[in-house]
Simulated scan of single mutants.
Amino acid sequence: MNASPVVELVGAAYAYQDGPTVLSGVDFGLAAGRSTALLGRNGSGKTTLLRLLSGGLQCAEGVLRLNGEPVVYNRAGLTRLRTTVQLVVQDPDDQLFAASVGQDVSFGPMNLGLAEDEVRARVDEALQALDITALYDRPTHLLSYGQRKRAAIAGAVAMRPRVLILDEPTAGLDPHGQERLLEVLGRLRESGTTVVMATHDVDLALRWADDAAVLSPDGLRTGPVAELLADQALLDAARLRRPWGAAAAQVLRAHGLLGEGEPGPRTPQDLARWASAVREG
């Protein structure tokens, strides 16, 4: 990435108490307006990395920087960080706690000491972005799983962060729920929000993200998503399967139907459009 990172880890390491080192020597920066898929096997350190980026954990070694300045882990420093970077955890029940959706989404802005009309504007904006305006007065315990996921994300969006970090946001959602969530994330990206998603779904990563960050026993590798997810040695080390689109591109190139520099299909729809263009050409 050429742009200066909004938030970045430099030489970061972390080990849980009485446990092995989870991450070591990690350099990872997030530039404005990019979407990044974070991939790796279970236990590779994805959630730990996300919590380090959001200030939920503090590096044992290395530094977390916000807009180029080291983050100070006091009340003022963490407030500054969390007005820029918001983390949404995997299980929405670990995040939702208020009696109603409106109350839950308003909690963060209220803690910033904003005026009541500004809080309400942010809540309305977030609920609209997540397409859950009708749930404003709904008790959180009466929401479906997909609704709880979106309500948890709305709480983060109401803080108007520049960076939104999501830990396995599509886990537990049916295909329709996944598509609705991806549409929401697409709108947030278009508005300039940097979005980071930890996921096990390599096909989703390939079609959704600009960049990928892959954790393996050899460390963290970052780069354009299509490039990294075509690297079979990296995928094997991270215990990830090759994405559908990357496999299709390999077959097309083997038959001379796709040039080395040409991007391959990321979805079945891409392949159908490509095939139609070849037939018409």
Rank of each mutant, 00 (worst) to 15 (best):
N2E: 08
S4H: 09
V6Y: 01
V10N: 07
G11R: 08
D18N: 14
V22P: 00
L23T: 09
L23M: 11
L23R: 13
V26C: 07
A32H: 11
S35R: 13
T36H: 05
L39R: 13
N42G: 01
S44A: 15
G45W: 02
K46R: 07
L49P: 00
S54M: 03
G55H: 04
V63M: 05
V63A: 10
L64F: 03
V71I: 11
V71K: 10
Y73V: 08
R75D: 09
T83I: 05
P92G: 03
D93L: 10
D94T: 11
D94F: 07
A99L: 14
A99N: 11
V105S: 02
G108E: 03
E116W: 11
E116K: 14
R122L: 09
I132D: 00
T133H: 06
L135W: 00
R138W: 01
S144A: 08
R148N: 06
A151S: 09
G155P: 06
A156C: 02
V157F: 03
R162L: 02
D167G: 03
P175W: 12
G177N: 04
Q178L: 02
R180E: 13
V184H: 03
L185Y: 00
L185S: 00
L185D: 00
S191H: 09
S191G: 12
V196P: 02
M197I: 15
T199M: 03
H200C: 04
H200I: 08
V202R: 13
V202Y: 01
A205K: 12
L206M: 15
W208D: 00
D211P: 04
P217G: 13
G219E: 13
G223H: 10
P224I: 07
P224R: 11
P224S: 09
L228A: 00
A230P: 04
A233E: 15
A233Q: 15
L234T: 10
L240N: 07
L240M: 14
R241M: 07
W244Q: 01
W244G: 00
G256L: 10
G256Y: 08
L257C: 15
L258M: 09
P263Y: 03
D270F: 08
D270K: 14
L271V: 12
A272E: 12
W274P: 00
S276C: 13
A277L: 14
